[in-house]
């Protein structure tokens, strides 16, 4: 998961993922919106592929990229679990604090 987070920490890589969410794209197509060289885009693609977020296939001289199925699931599942457990915890804590606050107000 650390690899996933490192891969996601870069805005260009997040933009590449957003583009791929719309469908498969070649390296040239992915590079087009960015003011950086194609080798630089290729390096970003390597990082995303190493993190298991995207997959590439060979199509003649082209290497089209697409999102890897379930690439984000590990991270998403963990953060969802954490968010949900904490949400329940803190809702309970709200009720507990409200109840003990009322009790204190009733004290003489």
């Amino acid at each position: 998961m650390d690899t996933t987070l490192a891969a996601l920490s870069d805005p260009t890589r997040r933009a590449i993922l957003a583009r791929l969410a719309e469908g498969e794209a070649t390296v040239n197509e992915l590079a087009a919106p960015f003011p950086i060289s194609q080798p630089a885009i290729s390096r970003h693609i390597k990082v995303l592929a190493a993190a298991g977020l995207i997959v590439q296939r060979v199509d003649g001289t082209k290497r089209p990229c697409r999102l890897a199925p379930g690439g984000l699931s590990d991270l998403d599942a963990y953060l969802d679990m954490l968010r949900n457990a904490l949400r329940h915890n803190y809702d309970r804590l709200d009720r507990l604090l409200a109840a003990s606050g009322e009790k204190k107000d009733e004290d003489p």
């Binding site: 987070l5 804590l93 606050g101």
Partner: peptide
């Protein structure tokens, strides 16, 4: 009420407001 953010690649930051004062939340 709950904000959960990742910071860099190893840190998660959680923020939450409570109606009770810091003394009570700290004790809990």
């Amino acid at each position: 009420k709950l904000v959960l953010e990742t910071e860099g690649d190893t840190v998660v930051v959680v923020r939450r407001r409570f109606a009770a004062p810091p003394e009570a939340v700290y004790r809990a």
